[in-house]
Design a binder for these strands. Structure first.
Lengths: 201, 201, 201, 201
DNA sequence: AATGAATGAGCGTTCATTCAT
DNA sequence: GATGAATGAACGCTCATTCAT
């Protein structure tokens, strides 16, 4: 009983895209060559151009489909919780989980994003906005419900959250993923909410 | 008694290094060419090789001297305060101020750091460690003095602080520096200490 | 009694050849790709290799059959006239008419001929010789009959005629065929015969 | 006493341009590679790009400077004669002489001109126009002075002359230059003026 | 017969680095 | 020290041709 056999074309497209992500993650985009990607994917150099317009396009497709899809999952994870604090926890948790599961994607997203505005600016901005919008909604709901401080500059709070999460991921990446990234979700959210100060402050 | 007369050599070295930082910041390291740097510095291509071993070395020197020096200033700023919370405030303030004053350095440091482990890994790790050590000291002192929560996982707290600051800088960079970066220091530190949760939590 | 039913194979052969001529005329031989020809012909790239040995062979076949056939018609047109001057007029007329009717062939023949000695040298020389022989016969007959000057260097006269006709065609091609090419036949022949000098010379 | 020592740059520019013309003449523009030109010129591949923007530019420069210059000489040759028929003779003579002296230029101009409108359209049109204008002037003067027929369609006469000359050159080229091209000038002009018809016509 | 995905040799171009002046 | 012309390795990309289906 065949439900969904991906056709050959899609298979090769994915093979190449994943090979590319692996190579990009290892060497950086500009240091990666088409020949390396082809070798990693087990195809000829020219084959890559049957599935991608050019080298830039490979990175673009990565941001357009692969990463985008992951970021959309974050929204779904959030929807599963009712109260803002659980939503935030779900967001951070699914973010860390997803990046832990696909280390190459994590590297590419963390280290290559800022540099490739030229290539995938719109996609990255779109994702970034989607992420920030989710956070905004959470904050606002939290403020209405009283579980989040009302005297906050929203723009700053968003950076505060995004930055903490990003840095936790970066640290994990630099440590070669030797610990459970996802396990950092709960302590991190707790920190975000309560801060580092003792109640004496 | 030595009067610090910089000799001609040092001047040209600095001219080139600053030109390179400008060019790297504008185009990224790998997209920048020696010819561009030479033009920006007003010297011949070959001259660059009298002061730097190769292209990589320029970036290495940037991290080795220029950035390192700035990061050392952070330590000095911290030393001026007595209590941990003021120390943290001074750290964040001097960090934001320094990066606001030298935008190119900020760009290079924020966007190129992760990618150049190959080139300047030791320097970057050294700086990073220095920065994290400062924070560690602050946290520990704060915990002893009671102004910082004692139930914190130190490794996480450090990322939490570093990440927030970085992201605030990134956001400022992406906004083309249209506002006072330094003005974000106090609200950010306040957030770090108190968190986003209302005391009701 | 054979009724000329072209079989399927011949049809496809012609479809491809005509598509190729169209593409070659538009882009030049070396700038045309097999993929373009295949698209224009409505077949797969690989199909072309069932009918032609390789890309060169397509051009070769063009000169071998298509153009050759047209050039043979010139001989027939000449045979319809008795006196040399009418023969010349018929030759030029049928030449201009044929090229006007098949613009792509005209382009290919005029602009690509000289460059493809490598590919179809023998065919082109053969056609060229055939054409020049027709002219030679006309001239010689005209000299015997007294309507053509006897003091002429035959080799030069042939170039003189061929060159004039070619250039008239080229001019028409460059003007995007906005006028009747065939209408130039009579004035041109008149020029060839009488020259540009007044009888006073 | 040094009057005009060409500097090194100009020398190498010319070396490369001449090597390129040689290679283009031998293989055609698109079949020639940068590597071939570099080898012929005795320089490295990259050196070519110090003097020319790209491969197209080499051909462009050829038409822009080298050929243009020769075509301007034609105008000067014409100016040396007073009566229209001598002017025409001088034009044809200097044309054939120049092309005989630089065979590669002749090949490139004759066989590559039509195909490279993309690359040097304006230059080629300019030269072509210059040439046709010279002829127009001659014809008109000749008609006023009575030595050229008044009942001529100027547009056709120009093609008639240009075409004859071109074809004479082509024939010489195809014969591998085994005879004196310039010696064809006088008989050709005589043909242009008197035509091939006997006065009996 | 017909397809079109796959191949990989080959090309134009760039640019870090060298070295004669 | 300073120059910048010259180098040539390396890369992205194209496309004629093949071959499994």
């Amino acid at each position: 009983m065949v439900i969904a056999t991906k056709n050959k074309s899609t298979e090769k497209y994915n093979t190449i895209l994943e090979a590319a992500v692996k190579v990009f993650a290892a060497n950086g985009f500009y240091q990666s060559t088409i020949a390396q990607i082809a070798r990693e994917a087990g195809v000829a150099d020219g084959t890559i151009y049957l599935y991608f317009k050019n080298k830039d396009d490979i990175l673009f497709q990565f941001f357009n489909y692969k990463t985008k899809q992951v970021f959309q999952q974050f929204g779904e994870a959030v929807a599963l919780a009712d109260n803002p604090i659980d939503k935030l926890r779900n967001l951070v948790r699914s973010h860390l989980k997803a990046f832990q599961q696909d280390r190459c994607m994590a590297i590419l997203y963390q280290t290559e994003t800022h540099k490739y505005k030229r290539i995938a600016d719109d996609r990255i901005k779109e994702m970034s906005k989607m992420y920030l919008d989710i956070i905004s909604d959470i904050i606002e709901q939290g403020q209405q419900e009283g579980c989040i401080r009302k005297d906050l500059y929203l723009g700053l709070v968003k950076r505060f959250i995004v930055g903490s999460v990003d840095e936790v991921i970066n640290t994990w990446l630099h440590a070669d993923g030797q610990y459970e990234l996802a396990s950092m979700a709960d302590p991190l959210v707790e920190l975000l909410i309560r801060g580092i100060g003792s109640s004496a402050n």
